[in-house]
Each structure stands twice: as C-alpha cells, then as structure tokens.
C-alpha cells in the first residue's frame, strides 16, 4: 500500500492503495465515485472513460501509481449542476436506455468537443469507440451534434 494525492474533479484527494490498482477501482472503491463504470477491464468498452488532462482515458488499465499530477475529471465533475451542454443534449434527446454506458460515452464526447468543438460524423466515428450494448449510437451521434451547436452559440 502506498499513499497517493490525486487531483480529481478539481480537488486534491488522498488515497491509500496498492500501486497496481487501476484508477477505476480507486475511484469506485476508495473514493466512492461510482459514476465511472466497469465494463471490461481491458480498455475495450469505454465504460470507465475519464478525462485525464483533457484526453479521454480508459481508467480500468491505468494504475493509480501512473496518474501523477495529471488532472482527472469524472462524470461527477463534468459540470457543477449537471448542465454541461452534452448532459443537456443527452436529456433533451432522451439518449439512454439502460444508461450504464452513458457516463463513459459522455466523458469520451466531452474530450472530443474540447479538441473539436464542431465534429463531423467522421470525427465522431473516430472518437466514439465506446460500446453501448443497448444500441443508443444513433441518438448519441445526434446529441453530440446538438451539444456542439449549444456550445458554439453560447
């Protein structure tokens, strides 16, 4: 066990964990930030996606010891009041079905919009590689376009 100071959602949080513990489980088990989900553990499904210094990162394969000083943003920190343009677009278009994959989808989409404020369909195809078993992809695509519109007319 070692002590780590992590920057999560704008706060410094200290945790004690084995150095090989994936950030995902530190978030879920140590910090009770359970919005970040477990789906595969092998960087395939994207359910565990967090924002690490502005990049979408699959936290199930990032050992806590490798996080360092980088800033982590989880779904709980995506916006203060749940009013990020993506969150609003997701609500407006009623994107989710079971909902389980959606926090990962939102985090992937939010990093996409950071680098590409008005993504084309092709850019969405390339950036959004998360799995949704319920098949909400059509609405996710629409919601990203809608959020981009909201962002750009702000």
């Amino acid at each position: 066990m070692a002590k780590y100071s992590l920057s999560i959602n704008g706060k410094i949080m200290s945790v004690e964990a084995d150095d090989d513990t994936p950030l995902l489980w530190v978030l879920r088990d140590n910090l009770n930030l359970v919005g970040t989900k477990f789906g595969c553990g092998v960087a395939q499904c994207g359910a565990c996606t967090v924002d690490l210094d502005g990049e979408a990162l699959r936290s199930c394969v990032l050992p806590v010891s490798a996080v360092g000083k980088r800033k982590v943003v989880t779904i709980e920190g995506l916006s203060e009041d749940g009013d990020h343009p993506l969150q609003k677009a997701w609500e407006e278009l009623d994107v989710s079905q079971c909902g389980y994959c959606q926090s990962g989808q939102l985090m992937a989409a939010s990093t996409l919009l950071k680098s590409t404020p008005d993504p084309t369909d092709q850019q969405i195809d390339e950036a959004m590689t998360n799995i949704c078993r319920c098949g909400t992809q059509v609405r996710i695509r629409k919601a990203i376009h809608l959020a981009a519109k909201k962002l750009n007319t702000k």
Binding site: V34, K37, L86, Q87, V95, Q102
Partner: peptide, 23 residues
C-alpha cells in the same frame, strides 16, 4: 407523446443507480 426517461438526469450525472454501485 415523447417523455424522457425518468432517470435520465441521474444517469448523465453519474448517480449510483445500479447494483454494481451498492456500498
């Protein structure tokens, strides 16, 4: 009519809704 899922806000804000979130 079109009615949004009752849990959608909790879903998009990452609230503990699922069995896996039980603590």
């Amino acid at each position: 009519t079109r009615i949004t899922d009752v849990d959608v806000h909790s879903i998009v804000t990452g609230k503990p809704l699922f069995g896996i979130d039980t603590r």
